Computed example of a mutant assay.
Amino acid sequence: MNKVYVFILLLIGFVFSASASVKEEADKAYQENDFKTAIEKYEAILNAGQESADVYYNLGNSYYKNKNIAKAVLNYERALLLSPGDNDVRYNLEMAKSKTIDKVTPKSEVFIVTWINSIRNIMSESAWSVFAISCFILFLLGTSTYIFGKKIVLKKIGFSLAVIFLFFTVVGNLFADAQKDRLVNRTGAIVMQPSVTVKSTPNESGTDLFVLHEGTKVYINDNTMKGWKEVSLEDGNRGWVPTESIEVI
Rank of each mutant, 00 (worst) to 15 (best):
L81I: 15
V184I: 11
N2T: 14
V241E: 08
L212Q: 02
V241L: 00
V248Q: 00
P202L: 10
G149R: 06
K217G: 07
P84Q: 00
V6C: 13
G49S: 00
V153Q: 04
W228N: 08
G206H: 08
A48F: 05
V184A: 09
L141A: 09
M123A: 14
V55F: 01
A20M: 01
L183M: 02
G158H: 10
V55C: 06
V153M: 11
Y30F: 13
G158Y: 10
K97T: 02
Y42S: 02
M225E: 15
S134H: 10
S124F: 05
F167E: 12
Y146W: 12
E77S: 06
R78V: 08
E214Q: 08
L80H: 01
A189F: 09
S195W: 00
D54V: 01
D235F: 07
A48N: 13
K23I: 11
N117D: 14
H213K: 01
V211P: 12
E24C: 05
K107R: 12
A178S: 06
K71F: 01
K28V: 02
I249E: 05
L161H: 08
S144N: 15
A162N: 06
K65L: 11
L93F: 01
A18P: 13
I119L: 05
E43W: 01
F159S: 14
I133H: 10
L141P: 02
G60T: 02
S17R: 14
V130P: 06
G149E: 02
Q193Y: 06
V153I: 15
F167T: 09
F35C: 13
S108P: 08
M225I: 15
E234C: 07
L183V: 04
A53Y: 02
Y76W: 02
L141G: 03
G142E: 05
T145L: 15
F136K: 09
Q50M: 14
I45A: 00
S21H: 11
V22K: 06
L80P: 01
F139W: 07
I133Q: 11
L140I: 15
V55P: 06
Y56D: 04
D102M: 07
K3R: 00
A96G: 01
L166N: 14
L138H: 04
S126L: 10
N223Y: 08
M225A: 11
S144E: 05
V241C: 00
L183P: 06
Y64P: 03
N66K: 10
L80M: 10
Y91A: 11
M95Q: 04
S17Y: 15
N185D: 10
M192K: 05
F168C: 09
S17L: 09
S52D: 05
E94F: 08
G49D: 00
I137P: 01
Y146A: 04
I45D: 00
T114M: 06
G239M: 12
Y219D: 03
P194D: 04
F7V: 13
T114D: 10
K97S: 03
T169R: 07
Y57L: 03
G239Q: 01
P194C: 01
A48T: 00
R120V: 03
F139V: 07
N203F: 12
A53S: 12
E51V: 15
Y5D: 15
A38F: 00
Y219G: 11
V4I: 14
F111N: 11
